[in-house]
């Protein structure tokens, strides 16, 4: 027991100590990231004045939001078809193609998408230039895989007789989807949305491939600035991110708690 507790603490320290150091040093007065001088918020002020970083930050947020919505929409449709439509010609191909991006190295995904966009613009004249739009398309392409898996596992778990019962009581299939299915898989939609959002915000490799001049996402800007030496501004930015994530995950946890009340004990019902 004691050893287990020590291991647990050691593991948590290993995971979270670097984050803690980063947060503490974001309030450091010194220019040097490793030497503590005195408390100050000047890097936060400088961060807010740094147009390049702030621009990249907002671009990343926009792309991440748009990606999450699109991925949830496509992922829900794909998962619904996979789970509820039974066997159809090409089902195996469809389901394996949907999850393929999960196991595909990012470099390959990025490169192939770049080639696709270049080829398309030569053939059709679209996209005229690469930028936020191409990054968005690329991010949707790979995050849909994750979202589909989350939603389809939730759909599979769902008692199919719920939908039948709604239909039996007079609801048309479309209505059943919106009144019964959708509310019941909502937790999966929320987690899928968050995952797609995080994946998109986090992505450096694919974005680097498919981005064009003038569209640099946050990871791209941070990465290139780190090569010139770490600025304490990055610490400040990271601290803001950690804060946002804490608030965000608390909100999700809180909503999920409320959804838990809805979730029936399926096993008890099947008995």
């Amino acid at each position: 027991m004691r050893a287990a507790r020590v291991m647990l603490v050691a593991g948590l320290v290993f995971l979270y100590f670097p984050l803690l150091v980063l947060i503490i040093y974001s309030f450091n007065e010194s220019r040097l990231v490793t030497i503590w001088t005195e408390f100050s918020v000047k890097w936060y002020i400088e961060l807010l004045q740094d147009e390049q970083l702030m621009g990249a930050f907002f671009l990343s947020l926009q792309i991440a939001c748009a990606t999450a919505f699109m991925a949830v929409l496509l992922g829900t449709i794909a998962a619904y078809v996979l789970v509820n439509f039974g066997r159809f010609p090409g089902q195996t191909l469809f389901s394996s193609m949907i999850v393929a991006p999960l196991v595909m190295p990012e470099v390959i995904t990025g490169l192939s998408l770049l080639l696709l966009f270049v080829g398309l613009s030569e053939l059709l004249g679209w996209p005229a230039s690469r930028g936020a739009m191409t990054i968005w398309i690329a991010h949707v392409t790979f995050s849909v895989a994750f979202v589909t898996i989350i939603i389809s596992s939730r759909l599979r778990e769902m008692d199919g007789s719920l939908e039948e019962a709604a239909m039996d009581l007079g609801a048309t299939p479309l209505k059943v989807f919106f009144v019964i299915t959708l509310p019941l898989i909502m937790p999966a939609l929320v987690s899928g949305w968050l995952l797609a959002f995080t994946l998109s915000l986090d992505d450096l490799v694919i974005a680097s491939f498919v981005s064009g001049p003038g569209a640099s996402t946050l990871p791209m800007v941070i990465y290139s600035s780190v090569r010139l030496g770490v600025s304490p501004k990055i610490n400040a930015l990271a601290t803001i991110f950690v804060g946002m994530i804490l608030v965000g995950s608390f909100l999700v946890w809180w909503t999920m708690q409320r959804w838990q009340v809805y979730a029936t004990d399926k096993k008890a019902a099947e008995g």
Partner: peptide
Amino acid sequence: SPPYQRPVNMMFQSYALFPH
């Protein structure tokens, strides 16, 4: 007639009560 137009109602084995 599709299920939603039949004058028939069913009690399911799992009861299929809408949990939400």
